[in-house]
Every structure is written in structure tokens, then in C-alpha cells.
Amino acid sequence: MTPEQTGRRIQEALDRLADDGAQDTGEQLVRELMAFYADGLARLVRAVPPAGLSALLDDPAVAGLLVLHDLHPEDAATRIARALAALPEPVELLGFEPGSGTVRLRRTRSGCGCSEQDVEAALACHAPEVTAVVLERAPQLLQIGTRPAAPAEAR
């Protein structure tokens, strides 16, 4: 199960609790569990050697948990680059605006490539501060060649 699916299931459970009037109790339960998991994860992060932790950061579930609990050792730009490197088709990072959460990217090839949904999914766990993706197309190459000869009557 992905972190996004887990988040949706938790939200659905909380929504059901709201219908029964027990929302405050459900939210308190989630807060207590989150604090418990954050403490345990912090201990694990401190105990794992840097090389071992670096290898784990490519896993979307691990990265998502570390970001969720503010334990991820990499800054947003590094996490964005890590997420983009995992895409099947390369894209170029043009910039990230933390204030708006917008990341600007350019396809590096002029084919079908990755869709915005593919990019958003890759960024969801690694860089949840990205709230908008602007994906520019790669520039089309100008084909330069010899011009066909003009018909005799046009000369």
C-alpha cells in the first residue's frame, strides 16, 4: 500500500468518526500514534549509518514517513531531484518556488514522456511541499536541410 493510499484510508476513517460524533477522539488517537511513530523513527534514523540511510531514501514509503515526521535528512531541492531521477523519462528541474509550492520542469526529450500525473506521483512522497507542477515541453528541433529543387515553370 502506498503512503497516499494509507493517508486516504485514515482520512476516510476519520470522516466516518465525524459522522458518529467521535471525531475529536479519533483525531486524538491519530495524534498519539503519530507522536509514538515519530519518536521511534527518530531513534532509527540516528542508529542507521549514513550509507544505509541514503539507500533507504529512494523507497517512497520510507521517504514519505521521514518527510511526514520532519526527519528526512535532505532538503527539498535534493528530495525533488531524487524523485525526478526515479522517473522513467528524464525531466529537467527549472526551479522550485517554496512560497507557492510550484516546481517548474522541462521534458528533456520531445516524445510522449512522463505526464504531469507521473511527475506528481513521484514527488508526492519525496517532496510533499510541491503543490503544483508546471511541465514544459522540450523545444522542437529545427530541421535544416537542402530545399527541393523548384519546378522548371516556377523559375
Rank of each mutant, 00 (worst) to 15 (best):
P148S: 09
L142T: 14
L44E: 01
E4Y: 06
L57K: 00
V119Q: 02
G113E: 08
A38Y: 01
H69E: 05
G52F: 07
D24H: 09
L84K: 06
G113Y: 07
L84H: 02
Q28D: 09
T102Y: 04
I10E: 06
V91Y: 03
L33I: 09
P49M: 10
P90C: 10
R137G: 11
R82L: 06
D19G: 10
D75W: 09
Q5P: 02
A83Q: 02
D39R: 14
V103L: 05
T78M: 03
A51S: 14
T6R: 07
S110I: 12
R147V: 11
E27I: 05
Q143S: 09
R79F: 08
A81T: 09
Q28R: 12
A85R: 15
L66S: 00
S115A: 11
A85V: 06
E92Q: 14
V45H: 00
G145Q: 13
A127W: 04
P49C: 07
V103R: 05
V133H: 12
E97I: 05
E32F: 05
V30A: 09
A22S: 13
R8A: 08
A132K: 15
R46Q: 10
A55Y: 04
A149W: 09
D75S: 06
L84I: 10
L33G: 03
R46G: 03
L68K: 01
A38K: 12
Q117H: 08
E129D: 08
G21Q: 08
A86G: 10
F96C: 03
D39Q: 15
L94W: 12
R9C: 05
G95D: 06
Q11W: 11
F36T: 14
S110Q: 14
I10D: 01
A18C: 03
D59P: 01
V91M: 01
T108D: 07
R109G: 15
V45Q: 01
C125M: 02
M1Q: 07
M34L: 11
E129A: 10
A127D: 05
V91F: 01
L68T: 05
R46N: 08
Q5I: 11
D19I: 05
R79I: 00
G113T: 07
L141W: 13
L53S: 06
D59M: 00
T102L: 15
E89I: 08
R8C: 00
D118Y: 01
E116N: 07
R46K: 14
V62L: 00
R8V: 03
E136Y: 13
L33S: 05
P151R: 15
A81C: 03
R16P: 02
M1G: 07
R109S: 13
A61Q: 02
V67Y: 01
V133Q: 06
L41D: 07
R109C: 09
D75N: 12
T25Q: 11
A149L: 12
G21P: 12
E116P: 02
V62T: 08
A38L: 02
A22V: 08
R147K: 12
R109V: 14
P60F: 05
P148I: 11
G145K: 09
P3H: 02
P50E: 10
Q140D: 14
A38D: 08
L105K: 03
G64S: 04
V91W: 02
H72S: 00
V67T: 13
L41H: 04
L142Y: 10
R137T: 12
A38Q: 10
D75G: 12
A122S: 05
L41Q: 02
A77C: 10
L29P: 04
R109Y: 09
D58A: 12
R46T: 11
L65H: 06
Y37V: 09
G113W: 07
Y37S: 04
A122I: 01
